[in-house]
């Protein structure tokens, strides 16, 4: 929060100026005026931080908290004929009973389970680049390239690649494996989309890892090499412990990325299907609001998603604090 930011530097500068002004006033009268002035200044000084933070607070309240409150309030009203009437927890009960919403929440759980994989891939690739495998310069730019593509383009590319009669299945046919319906099989589609998402976004995490590596103490690695440690042991005993903070940071940002920015891919690649197995809360909210004309139910789903994100955010803060203490 930027609220505390502006006031501390303002204080010493202000009192210095006040002191300077008082010195220039000779005599008793001047002293009284100075007292009054300093009293006024003290009051101004007390108020200054509030005035300074007011714009930020007003913006947050008017554009963030107030709409949030309205949205939560709206989630307790009905849709259609019940528009505007209070229905209590009706929408939340409907969500709890809606298999589609339950699927979307289960998929959130699945993403959490897949998280270590999504972090390990850029971590491992960054390690290889750091250890200067042949061609590491090329890899560095190639790995980052997908991160500049929009999800819609990535989705369209993979729609073609993963189509039932697409190139990937043709390759599989050459080696004798049966065609896989990557986006049409309910048991596979969610993994496919998550895989594509990881492909499209791991470049950013890779850059963060490389930044983390630049703070790594090279002498430790040299020592390990002198001692004849294998690559696996070097990674486990030297690299991972030195990069704890970076890994935690990547964990949290990847998690948030998965929960909030997969909409584009889902929209283009599966439309939530097949059989609704690739729904995420975000997609569910959009579907209920825009397609089925249920804005209040969508508000309730948004509120649930907000709470989930809040939990993730708090976990993030806890993790980063703990990492800070370790240092």
């Amino acid at each position: 929060m930027p609220t505390g930011g502006p006031s501390p530097p303002a204080r010493p500068a202000d009192s210095e100026r006040a002191g300077g002004a008082a010195v220039k006033q000779p005599g008793r009268r001047a002293t009284r005026t100075a007292t009054r002035q300093s009293f006024r200044r003290a009051r101004a000084e007390r108020l200054a931080p509030y005035v300074l933070v007011a714009p930020a607070v007003l913006i947050i309240v008017a554009l963030r908290l107030w709409p949030l409150a309205l949205g939560v309030n709206f989630s307790f009203t009905g849709d259609g004929e019940l528009n505007g009437t209070a229905v209590g927890l009706g929408n939340y009960l409907e969500l709890a009973g809606d298999p589609l919403f339950r699927t979307s929440m289960r998929n959130v759980g699945l993403l959490v389970l897949l998280l270590p994989l999504a972090v390990a891939i850029p971590g491992l690739l960054a390690t290889f680049i750091y250890l200067r495998v042949p061609g590491h310069r090329v890899y560095r730019s190639v790995y980052f390239f997908p991160a500049v593509l929009s999800p819609v383009i990535v989705g369209a590319i993979f729609n073609l690649m993963l189509g039932y009669d697409g190139p990937l299945n043709s390759v599989l046919a050459v080696i004798g494996a049966g065609p896989v319906d990557w986006l049409g099989d309910p048991g596979i589609a969610m993994f496919t989309v998550t895989g594509v998402h990881v492909w499209a976004t791991f470049g950013m995490a890779l850059v963060v890892f490389l930044a983390g590596f630049s703070t790594l103490d090279a002498s430790l690695l040299d020592a390990a090499r002198v001692d004849g440690a294998s690559l696996g042991r070097t990674i486990w005993h030297v690299i991972i412990p030195s990069l704890t903070r970076t890994i935690q940071f990547v964990f949290v940002t990847t998690m948030i990325g998965m929960l909030t920015s997969m909409f584009g891919l889902l929209f283009v690649m599966t439309s939530g299907g097949p059989e609704g197995t690739t729904y995420l809360p975000e997609y569910y909210i959009w579907h209920q609001q825009g397609q089925l004309n249920r804005p209040a139910l969508a508000s309730a789903a948004s509120t649930v998603l907000f709470v989930v994100m809040l939990v993730v955010g708090l976990l993030q803060i806890t993790l980063i604090r703990r990492a800070g203490r370790q240092d």
């Binding site: 189509g163 009669d165 319906d181 059989e275």
Partner: peptide
Amino acid sequence: SKGANSTAMFND
């Protein structure tokens, strides 16, 4: 046609 559940009606 094959892959009906993964082929878009509009317009594939």
